[in-house]
Design a protein around this nucleic acid. Structure first.
Lengths: 110, 110
DNA sequence: TTTATTCATTGCAATATTACGATTAAGCAG
DNA sequence: CTGCTTAATCGTAATATTGCAATGAATAAA
């Protein structure tokens, strides 16, 4: 039904999935990479850098902002976006912990 | 239009997004965690562990398998699933590299 | 052979996502 | 105030995702 049954999973699993979903679009990966490279960036720059239309970029930025991954400061007519460093560290730890899982033993399976 | 314009992005960005999308559902996170914990697992176990119906779990397993994250070996009537360690290492490196990005300097922005 | 068991596949309904044109809102320049 | 620029929002079309009942395929047990 297109509706994820979040109530069946732990908060950690849901949080991880939400963040991963935000990373699950190349435009959002590109936006984050550009924000890291430039350290600060207005929407118009991203529209030029990435090939998508302005409303589309704005929508992707909104998603990243809703999750707290990026912040946006209004400066005149333009909005300056950048990574929220605290949240980035939190997310980084969640993923690193996930990836550091190791199998208990090298089972014979597969 | 619900259709991602992949051609606008690099192979790396698209690959990262594809993997992230696979992690973008709590059921798939739960499946991977269980596979790590147990090291090998049949579909029926996952159906019991997670609350979703068998076809739903089967579909999630298929997605993880298509991306090469897990392997499935038929053994009798049951299928033994487990993490593909090589692919896991590859994915791990992609994500760690992504997370290790640091801002060039602590800009004054935001 | 008949019956269970286990998992994949099909088909469908409900919902979510992606993309963009058109419009709106708000600041700045003249 | 008028016009320009920048970005958010609205509305909508196209496509993707999620979930499951029903069914199918294949092996194992009787």
């Amino acid at each position: 039904m297109g509706l994820t049954k979040s109530e069946m999973f732990t908060d950690e699993q849901n949080k991880m999935a939400l963040i991963a979903k935000a990373f699950g679009h190349p435009a959002r990966i590109a936006i984050l990479q550009h924000l890291f490279k430039i350290n600060s960036c207005v929407c118009g720059d991203l529209v030029n850098e990435i090939g998508l239309a302005q409303p589309t970029i704005s929508q992707h930025l909104k998603e990243l902002k809703n999750l707290g991954i990026i912040k946006g400061d209004i400066s005149g007519t333009s909005v300056c976006y950048c990574i929220d460093q605290d949240e980035w560290q939190t997310i980084k730890h969640i993923f690193i912990q996930f990836f550091e899982q190791e199998t208990i033993e090298n089972g014979t399976c597969c």
